[in-house]
């Protein structure tokens, strides 16, 4: 029977989510939809189809659509702030 040995785990767990954002009530019983386009070639087409699909299935009060300057970087704070203010939920697309 082999001896046991203690070995280090090299993996890090993802950091825990300390606070979950509260659920947002729908604005005037209709969805304020946000769209974050990553600027790749197909993103605008895919997102337009998704918006159309959501609008045909749910009451949508408004759509706010923003576009990143480049796919390889995070959306800047001002875009994220705008989505936070003006949307109840956001659809983001890679659309490679």
């Amino acid at each position: 029977m082999s001896q046991k040995v203690v070995l280090a785990v090299p993996e890090a767990p993802p950091p825990p989510l300390t606070t979950l954002p509260p659920l947002r009530p729908l604005h005037a019983h209709a969805l304020r939809l946000g769209v974050l386009d990553n600027s790749k070639g197909n993103a605008d087409h895919l997102l337009a189809m998704i918006v159309e699909g959501v609008q045909s299935a749910l009451p949508v009060a408004s759509v706010v659509s923003v576009r990143k300057l480049g796919a390889g970087m995070p959306a800047p704070d001002d875009l994220l702030d705008r989505l936070t203010r003006e949307a109840d939920c956001v659809v983001s697309a890679m659309a490679d």
């Binding site: 082999s2 046991k4 040995v5 203690v6 070995l7 280090a8 785990v9 993996e11």
Partner: peptide, 27 residues
């Protein structure tokens, strides 16, 4: 430090066993 939660594992002290385990876990 290795006694803290999730910091270590105890396995058979066998090279093949250890390597198979680390491969299986994606490490």
């Amino acid at each position: 430090l290795l006694e803290s939660d999730g910091a270590s594992i105890e396995v058979d002290d066998d090279w093949d066993t250890i390597n198979n385990l680390y491969l299986q876990r994606g490490w």
